[in-house]
Design a protein around this nucleic acid. Structure first.
Lengths: 351, 351
DNA sequence: CTGAAAGCGCTTACAG
DNA sequence: CTGAAAGCGCTTACAG
């Protein structure tokens, strides 16, 4: 494998000069630089990352930490972030936690990260206080999507408000018994998104003077299958809700499926609304609260690039962290409609 | 940041012994090993990957190269592979090519990989002859999913056969005019899967004595949206097909949506069959040819682990590469049905 | 079983 | 503008 010495010999210069020339550092005559670049090209030389890192360079690598990559939202954010990072010459180390606490611990709470990457992109996970403390003292810069961490830039939508937007739509349509399909029964403290959406659901009900009923709150774990199960529960209730609001489109798809299985017409017998605007949503006519997803990945990546550059240039005091709040907007399709006459009877009872 | 020297000082031993103890190498008394491990733990020491690699160790990192991570198939394979690799202590560098030739070139055809990772997992891309030659001389072991490369282990289904399975189902139901939604009009040589599925479609028609018509072959780029567009074309044909076979479930979902938009009943007016068994398939009643997906990622990861281990232990002649052919099976749901009376008229005409 | 020393392939002050 | 030399933090023969 050709090393920097081979290139140095080839052009009759020191490795120092070769190193500087290849990295476009100042202080190399343009003629020399050109000769070096040509020789390197000819010999097929690429610097050994390990040696560069060890000698004090950067790793040119970023870690992306996400709970799952099979969920549409995270896969899309990863793709958005990855392309921006790659354009800037960074490689991406993927840590898909898979809900595993052990892995999470190893990844977030060990020295691995700090010596391996120049920055960390955290998706959809709210680091605990312990983790935050550890990260801020040991780890390289952190940038987040859909979560907050003291002193770090983040990009997200207002989840509570997004939920309220979807709920308001249903309430405006006259629905009075509205089921909810959210994340899981016991939201861990470190997942703020599902908590905020649940809050939004509840607050909308309260402000509309509607009753909060525990049996209307179900949990779909952000999967189609989970939504199907949760939808099944809701539709089996003695007093069946006339609408179901879901914390994600994937769960909404599950609910639609549960409705179909029971022969319910959508939206005549049941209205369903989600959050995301999943790629599938427009094709199945799902009413949803759309959030920009690729864009969140891109913005988070740019935030991270900026932090890494800042740390390189000037280890002084950092700017106040940026919080980018993206707009989510209601997209009305065919899965939601007004309460029908026979439905509103049960709806009135509920009020 | 605590280094190996700090640990060595702490226990009053040489760095060599500390290094050996921590990596469980033989030739260290168990008492010594225990002291070292404890000290390392206490000091929060983790070896610098860069230094380990440079000193002759392995990178403990694997590259996964995939065209897209937002496609369900690839995301699922990645998740399967990643969890196996992580269990074995490997990190994963993700290269999502995004159909970009430039990125592809940089990733597959530069020295980056060879110095950065111990192995490469290639998903859904058939390296060109040039790339194969380069990879086999410069790169670490390669393991593939859904593609072949000389001398490398691979796992995949028989794509032509999978297509024939789906097609036979439609033919058995009496369909005589069957549309096809595949990858893209000009399949690059390096994507064998779409080509093989198209072959399967054609061969099934020929063997059933049915006519191959160019206007029945459309292209959906393996996305829902692409399937929707392609489906639209097929359903606008003067002689509308009574069935559509799709090279992936995501495209089939698009076709279903196009049918719905036109008010066509499924399966009475149109049968639709896909390949994959996408997580959504059972919830929308999609008939499909199921392939194991997570499993392909896991097997490919194990193949790679084995190769990496073999290279470590014994750089001698390697075993003949393993080709794992997984079974794909028809899953009949509600999106396919027999040709109806009024349909078969046009069907008969087509014969 | 343990240690001293060389070396992995770069980068970076420091000189000139 | 260029070079000699130290050093990044480990691992690995080689001795003992």
């Amino acid at each position: 494998m050709t090393g920097i010495n081979d290139v140095a010999k080839e052009v009759g210069l020191s490795t120092a000069t070769v190193s500087r020339a290849l990295r476009n550092l100042p202080g190399v005559s343009s003629e020399t630089r050109q000769r070096v670049v040509e020789a390197a090209q000819r010999l097929g030389y690429v610097a050994s990352p390990a040696a560069s890192v060890l000698a004090g360079g950067q790793t040119r690598t970023v870690a992306i930490v996400a709970p799952f990559v099979t969920r549409w939202f995270f896969a899309t954010v990863v793709e958005g972030a990855e392309s921006v990072l790659r354009q800037h010459g960074y490689d991406v180390l993927l840590y898909s936690l898979g809900g595993d606490q052990h892995t999470r611990r190893r990844v977030l709470h060990s020295h691995l990260l700090s010596k391996r990457v120049d920055g960390v992109l955290v998706l959809g996970i709210e680091p605990t206080d312990d983790e935050q403390e550890w990260l801020s003292t040991h780890a390289p810069p952190v940038s987040l999507v859909g979560a907050r961490m003291a002193g770090c830039p983040t990009v997200h939508i207002d989840d509570e408000r997004a939920a309220r937007t979807g709920m308001q739509h249903l309430i405006d349509l006259g629905h009075r018994v509205i089921g909810y399909v959210g994340g899981s029964a016991v939201e861990p403290l470190d997942f703020s998104t599902p908590r905020a959406r649940l809050q939004g659901y509840r607050r909308s009900l309260r402000e509309a003077g509607l009753e909060l009923r525990p049996e209307l709150e179900t949990f779909g774990h952000f999967t189609i299958e989970g939504g199907f199960e949760a939808g099944g529960e809701l539709l089996s209730l003695p007093e069946r809700p006339t609408a179901v609001f879901c914390a994600s489109d994937e769960m909404a798809i599950g609910v639609l499926s549960a409705a179909r299985e029971r022969g319910l017409r959508v939206p005549e017998d049941l209205s369903v609304v989600g959050i995301d605007d999943h790629q599938l949503a427009r094709y199945i006519g799902l009413t949803t609260v759309r959030q920009p997803v690729t864009q969140q990945g891109q913005i988070a990546a740019r935030n991270l690039l900026e932090l890494m550059q800042r740390r390189r240039l000037d280890p002084g005091p950092s700017l106040p962290p940026r919080e980018t709040l993206l707009q989510a907007e209601l997209v009305v399709r065919t899965s939601s409609g007004p309460v029908e006459a026979d439905q509103s009877v049960s709806g009135e009872r509920a009020t």
